[in-house]
Amino acid sequence: MPVNVIDGRREWRLRDRRGTLLRWLGTFAAVLLFGISMQYISSLTIWEFVADSGRQIGDLFGRMFPPQWSYAPRLWGPLWDTVNIATIGTLVAVIVAVPITFLAARNTTPHAVVRLAALLVIVVSRSVNSLIWALIIVALIGPGVLSGIIAISLRAVGFISKLLYEAVEEINQEQVEAMLATGASKLQVIAYAILPQIRPTFVGVSVFRWDINIREATVLGLVGAGGIGFQLNSAINLLLWDRASLIFAMILVLVVLSEAISARIRQAIT
């Protein structure tokens, strides 16, 4: 803790002069950046619409209640599709992610060039949101549940591989050395010395991604990739807000439920 000497009196300060200065500069930069951003955004905003927003939202909520409960039976199918897109998408992603993980981890990769290629796959997969993947896949193979599954797994592969290869790089190397000393092959080392060590992370990451995928799968239908988002899109396009509110309610229940399940499983394994 810095102590300033002022007129012979010793005074305690929380930070030294440099720290205070840096802190002020940081705050100033943040405020400046915020101001520039806000100005840019407001220059692109039509303020007449914003002034009207209170009435708009009141009108919207008026139309949303009561929800059109009679439409619910026709939503079970899309809801089931949504769950399937997330679940099968996660399964496919896990199967693809495991080999990529071992190619990307520094201690298991066969060659530095292979590692670089695996890292590139992970980076590209992670940087593109599943909705954008869906946009591309729908353009390639047409709308439907299959496109949703592919889009979800394209995004999830990078997520799972990244967290897993970091776990692989942090394993206890002694077990690997012990196995190598017995003459075990590379695959045997992975199966009996590495996999048991990363199993909790593996299950945790997969379940966590599954619950994120459920959330993402609810909107894939907006670009035609299957699931309940398709019904949501058509309800909004037809301005049937009472139907849309029913869909919102179903999405809320689904997401809260899947998050609770995933949290429960993750708690059980740690």
Binding site: Q56, L60, L131, R215, V219, I251, L252, V255
Partner: peptide, 14 residues
């Protein structure tokens, strides 16, 4: 719980 896109639908209407 709601994906950003769903929240965005609301704010675009607003």
């Amino acid at each position: 719980s709601f994906q950003e896109v769903i929240i965005a639908i609301f704010f675009v209407v607003m």
